[in-house]
Amino acid sequence: MEIGVPKETKDQEFRVGLSPSSVRVLKENGHNIFVESQAGVGAGFTDEDYRQVGAEIVSTAKNAWNRELVIKVKEPLQPEYQFLQKGQLLFTYLHLAADKALTEHLIDCGVTAIAYETVEVASSTNKLPLLIPMSIIAGRLSVQFGARFLERQQGGRGVLLGGVPGVRSGRVVVLGGGVVGTEAARIAVGMGATVQILDVNVERLSYLETLFGSRVELLYSNSAQVDAVVPEADLLIGAVLVPGRRAPILVSRALVGQMRPGSVIVDVAVDQGGCIETLHATSHTKPTYIEAGVVHYGVPNMPGAVPWTATQALNNSTLPYIVQLANLGMQAMQTNPALAAGVNVQSHRLVHPAVQQVFPDLAP
Rank of each mutant, 00 (worst) to 15 (best):
P20V: 00
V240P: 02
S123T: 15
G44Y: 13
Q225L: 06
N336C: 10
N201S: 10
N301P: 05
F34W: 04
D47A: 04
F14I: 07
E80F: 06
G329D: 07
Q334C: 13
K100F: 02
L255Y: 03
V240Y: 11
G293Y: 09
Q272F: 04
P303M: 00
M259T: 11
P353I: 11
A147C: 05
M134C: 04
E151K: 13
Q85T: 15
V25A: 12
V73S: 07
T318H: 02
G178M: 01
S123E: 14
D11F: 06
E68V: 13
V180H: 03
G158T: 05
A233I: 12
I265T: 02
Q356N: 08
Q331R: 14
N316L: 03
I290Q: 08
Q346A: 15
V240C: 07
R168N: 14
I187E: 12
N301G: 10
V358D: 02
H280N: 03
V268Y: 08
L235P: 02
G181R: 00
H284R: 06
I265H: 05
D199G: 04
F149H: 14
L96T: 12
V35F: 03
S142W: 08
A281Y: 00
T60I: 06
H348V: 00
L218K: 08
L18Q: 01
Q331V: 10
I107Q: 10
I114P: 01
E209K: 15
E8F: 00
Q88W: 13
V111F: 08
F359E: 06
L325P: 04
V270H: 04
S142M: 11
R157Y: 04
D361W: 02
A55D: 07
F83S: 13
N222P: 05
A354I: 07
E209T: 10
F149D: 10
G110V: 07
C275F: 09
S59C: 11
D227W: 01
P20K: 08
A281H: 00
L131D: 10
V264N: 09
V295N: 02
S124H: 12
L236C: 09
S283K: 07
L328C: 10
D271P: 01
V355E: 03
E277F: 12
S21T: 14
I33P: 00
S223T: 13
P300H: 01
N29H: 14
S223W: 05
S283I: 08
T9L: 14
T285E: 04
L130D: 09
K72F: 08
V195T: 07
G42D: 12
G163I: 07
V167L: 15
G170N: 02
V58P: 00
P364T: 05
A98E: 13
V58H: 01
P133W: 04
R171I: 03
I57M: 05
K72R: 15
G170T: 08
G30L: 10
N301K: 02
W308V: 13
S317G: 05
V180C: 11
E120D: 09
V323M: 09
V70I: 11
I114L: 13
S214M: 10
A247L: 04
G213V: 10
P165W: 05
